[in-house]
């Protein structure tokens, strides 16, 4: 992790000294979101934000927390079923974008005879499948013509690994950065859920498309958990402030 943050505007060239210094010299440089390589060896930023680097992975990317979600292969997302077609469900990930397809058979234990029935509006926790036609450019998944495909099973094991329809509960919109933080585990620095879980039981699912699903068994718990995460998100709270949110939330129960 770089100590001094380099702030970049679109079009700024990344100076070679701010690129990650690879620990393994053979590893090729990986460019994440927000960076663009112009051959032969110019790297420029395409969005405004802070440069982040990882020496171990020899990767560089731009940290940002705004904008629309663009599906990437292997992302965990919470999709809303829009309609059911002959073989697939058409689902929406973000408003006003082409629908994503979720095959009826992409559920654990689904066969041609027993397929899940999901009415329009139901929620599904799914993974974006790496489509064979998708190009290497991260932006053009789904834009290149083939629609985005979702799946609720691991293709190698046939198990669901927690994916599938989400029953009950409630959905809370959160920022894309917050969903990344929640999915990053310890690195994300979110302790509000662990703190609340010491006293109340609940179930959460985090979608990379900026959706948090919470089921606390009763309305009070669900709202408590959802609102706490939203507050942490809006105010950009660190760990100390989160403890305070937890304490205040539990007192209200």
């Amino acid at each position: 992790m770089a100590t001094a943050t380099t702030i970049l505007l679109p079009g700024d060239q990344i100076p070679p000294e701010s690129l990650p210094k690879p620990t393994n010299a053979k590893k090729p440089l990986t460019l994440g979101p927000g960076l663009r390589h112009i051959p032969p060896n110019t790297i420029t930023a395409t969005i405004a934000g802070a440069l982040a680097t990882d020496n171990k992975k020899n990767a560089a990317w731009i940290e940002y927390n705004s904008g629309r979600y663009t599906p990437q292969p292997h992302d965990l997302i919470i999709a809303t079923v829009h309609a059911s077609a002959a073989e697939t469900f058409t689902c929406t990930l973000t408003p006003h974008t082409p629908p994503a397809l979720l095959p009826h058979l992409a559920f654990e234990g689904a066969t041609r005879k027993t397929r899940p029935i999901l009415p329009p509006g139901s929620l599904v926790y799914a993974r974006v499948s790496p489509s064979p036609s998708s190009t290497t450019s991260g932006y053009s998944l789904g834009a290149g013509g083939a629609p985005i495909e979702l799946t609720c099973v691991d293709p190698s094991t046939g198990k669901s690994d927690g994916l599938g329809p989400l029953k009950g509960g409630m959905v809370f919109p959160i920022s894309l950065g917050m969903s990344r933080r929640l999915l990053a585990g310890k690195k994300g620095g979110v302790i509000v859920l662990e703190g609340l879980a010491k006293k109340v039981g609940f179930e959460v699912a985090v979608g990379r498309n900026g959706v948090l699903w919470v089921d606390g068994g009763n309305v009070k718990t669900t709202l408590l958990v959802g609102r706490a995460v939203q507050e942490v998100d809006e105010k950009g709270m660190g760990e100390k402030e989160q403890l305070w949110v937890v304490e205040r939330g539990l007192r209200g129960l």
Binding site: A50, E63, G189, G236, M237
Partner: peptide
Amino acid sequence: KVEKEMRWKSGT
């Protein structure tokens, strides 16, 4: 903008 987004990382 970056400062606001990175607040959770730097502060408290």
